[in-house]
Each structure stands twice: as C-alpha cells, then as structure tokens.
Simulated assay, not measured.
Amino acid sequence: MRVCLSCSFSLGSQLVKMSRKFFVGGNWKMNGDKKSIEEIVKFLTCGPLDPNVEVVVGVPAIYLEYTKSKLPGNVAASAQNAYKEPKGAFTGEISPCQIKDVGVNWVILGHSERRNVFGESDELVADKVGHALEVGLFVIACIGEKLEEREAGKTEEVVFRQIEAISKKVCDWSKVVVAYEPVWAIGTGKTATPQQAQEVHCKLRNWFKTKLGDCAAQKIRIIYGGSVTGENSKDLAKEKDIDGFLVGGASLKPEFVDIVNSNKQTC
C-alpha cells in the first residue's frame, strides 16, 4: 500500500492543531452601552456558535457585571485590562481581585493600544500578567510589532522580547492564550495574509519549543488579532499554528458568529 507522505504530514499537523481548542475572543474596546450590548447578546444567543470553540468577549469595565448576567452560557466575559496590584491608590484602575469579585475569569493584557497609546512597557505588562495569574484569572496576553518595526525586519526581535518578558511571570501556560496582533493591521483595514500570520505563529511556537520543550509548545494556543472579519477568518483558520482570533470591530457585529464558526473545516 502506497502512503502519500504529504497527506500524512498534513493529517498529523491537523491532529496536533485539533488538540488545542479553538479560541475566539471579541474585544469591544471603548464601545457599547446597555442597548447595544443587548443587541450583541441577542446575536450571540441566536448563534448558533460552534460548540468546539471557546468564546470570550472583552467588555468595558463599567459593563462587566451587566454583560455577564446577559451572556449565554457558552460565552464568557473578559475584562480588557487590569493593574498589577490587588488594591491601593491607583485612581481609575481595576484589580484582578475586583474582576474575580464580579464573577469574571478572563482579562486581556498587553493589547497594542495599552502599549502604544498608554505607554505600557514590556515589564509592566509582564507584571500585570503575573499578578492576574496569581489571583486566578485566565489571561489573553497580547504581543505584536508596529509597521516601522516590521519594515525594519524586527518582527521576531520585538515579539520575542515581548513574550520573553511575559514568560518570566508564567508558571502555567494552560491559563494563558497568546494573541499575536501586528499593530499595523489593527483598525487599519489591512490584514496580514494567512501566510504572513502563520509565519510569525510558527516562529513563536518554535520559540516556545526552545524554551519549554515540544510537548508544552504544542499545547499553547496562539491566536491572531488584526482586522479579522467574517470574510478572511476561514482562510486564516486553516493555518496549522493559528488557534483562533482576537477580534476588534467585527465582534460588535453579527459577523462575529461567522468568525466563531470559521474553524469548521471539511477534509
């Protein structure tokens, strides 16, 4: 019996990917009010959402408890940010303890807007990740390069530096989803091609393999964020090292359902 080696390799890669539960996060950013949240909850409830996908939506802090009370059981709420301390004189910040106290178990940390608009350093992001994990939250940890860094050939240097800082604060990677979000493709309408995104995801997984070993590296979920839409999500989802998405503007629209369902592939 003749065996097609390329088919066998493809099947093996697919099986490895299937061992990592597909993850789709929606980041609402500073958008929404009670009326629009009701509309979002309606299309999430109607779905239908692929039951094999973990779905989490990042909600403005002021609406976290309200949204959690409205979401269907197959969708979790997430905070969009948290500080590195449990309490104190930090006006305007929220702590992981407060997030837990309202029954929310996820937080997005290190998003490009936190880094590049609000000036958060690699070290601060790492400290925030470490504290959130200590408190018991699950973390979506974001990394990614700016356009000038990509054009200068510094993509690997930047993302490896960012993930290195975070890794020093992580003991259990099952509690962390890594989101690669090229800054040049966020809110610009530009999207990395599936091949460009896969290239960075593959290099990140190889970085984890070097640091943690192959077994651990194959379990870590690395998702893509950067102008993901219902139109491009299926092609992105086919790549073997892309384990889901962190979605911005499209998570406010019904097409988010299509993105959640984009991993339904036929052989």
Score class of each variant (00 low, 15 high):
residue 4 C to V: 00
residue 6 S to V: 15
residue 10 S to W: 02
residue 12 G to W: 01
residue 18 M to D: 15
residue 20 R to F: 10
residue 23 F to D: 12
residue 27 N to Q: 09
residue 30 M to Q: 08
residue 32 G to D: 10
residue 45 T to K: 07
residue 47 G to F: 10
residue 50 D to R: 04
residue 54 E to V: 05
residue 56 V to C: 12
residue 62 I to T: 12
residue 62 I to A: 12
residue 62 I to E: 10
residue 65 E to F: 09
residue 70 K to T: 09
residue 71 L to I: 00
residue 75 V to H: 04
residue 82 A to F: 01
residue 88 G to T: 10
residue 89 A to V: 05
residue 91 T to F: 08
residue 93 E to L: 00
residue 95 S to G: 09
residue 95 S to C: 04
residue 100 K to D: 03
residue 100 K to Y: 00
residue 101 D to V: 08
residue 104 V to E: 11
residue 109 L to N: 12
residue 113 E to K: 13
residue 114 R to L: 13
residue 115 R to D: 03
residue 116 N to V: 12
residue 119 G to L: 02
residue 120 E to T: 12
residue 121 S to W: 13
residue 124 L to Y: 08
residue 126 A to Y: 04
residue 126 A to G: 09
residue 128 K to E: 09
residue 130 G to A: 08
residue 130 G to Y: 02
residue 131 H to S: 01
residue 132 A to Y: 01
residue 133 L to N: 03
residue 133 L to D: 05
residue 135 V to N: 09
residue 136 G to F: 10
residue 139 V to E: 10
residue 140 I to W: 08
residue 140 I to L: 15
residue 141 A to T: 09
residue 142 C to R: 14
residue 142 C to A: 14
residue 144 G to W: 06
residue 147 L to M: 11
residue 147 L to E: 15
residue 150 R to C: 04
residue 156 E to Y: 13
residue 156 E to W: 15
residue 157 E to I: 14
residue 157 E to F: 13
residue 159 V to C: 08
residue 159 V to H: 02
residue 167 S to H: 08
residue 168 K to T: 11
residue 174 S to D: 15
residue 175 K to H: 10
residue 180 Y to S: 09
residue 182 P to M: 01
residue 183 V to S: 12
residue 184 W to A: 07
residue 185 A to N: 00
residue 185 A to G: 03
residue 185 A to V: 01
residue 187 G to P: 06
residue 188 T to D: 11
residue 189 G to L: 13
residue 193 T to L: 05
residue 194 P to Y: 01
residue 202 C to R: 15
residue 203 K to T: 09
residue 207 W to G: 11
residue 209 K to S: 13
residue 210 T to K: 14
residue 212 L to G: 05
residue 213 G to R: 06
residue 214 D to I: 03
residue 217 A to W: 11
residue 227 S to V: 02
residue 228 V to G: 02
residue 232 N to K: 03
residue 237 A to Q: 08
residue 237 A to E: 06
residue 240 K to G: 04
residue 246 L to E: 05
residue 248 G to V: 00
residue 250 A to N: 03
residue 254 P to V: 14
residue 257 V to I: 01
residue 261 N to Y: 05
residue 261 N to S: 02
residue 261 N to I: 06
residue 267 C to L: 13
